[in-house]
């Protein structure tokens, strides 16, 4: 099964890259873009047909390595 893991900075944490991107978008004329948060996206191929098991494993991997719980949160999708 394939798991998708999205890692983003927590809302309370300042994202200087997102800030720079939004400033660039405003310069380009996209004034309606209010905020941009940059994150990370991972695709995990997991050798199981049990989607609950795949989701649990992806979450475990995110907890241990893919995300730093001090500054980041994550979301897992199974496809």
């Amino acid at each position: 099964m394939r798991a998708r893991v999205f890692v983003t900075l927590k809302p309370s944490v300042f994202d200087p890259q997102g800030r720079t991107i939004v400033e660039a978008l405003h310069t380009m004329g996209y004034g309606d873009v209010g905020d941009v948060r940059q994150g990370k996206y991972f695709e995990l191929e997991i050798e199981t047909t049990d989607s609950a098991k795949a989701k649990a494993m992806a979450a475990e991997v995110a907890d241990k390595l893919l995300a730093n719980p001090v500054i980041e949160s994550y979301r897992v999708e199974i496809v």
Partner: peptide, 17 residues
């Protein structure tokens, strides 16, 4: 040491990138 949990906190990209 921060990532290993031996020290408290975390590092972010420098304010000015």
């Amino acid at each position: 040491l921060l990532e290993a949990g031996l020290l408290p906190g975390a590092m972010l990209r420098n304010r000015g990138l």
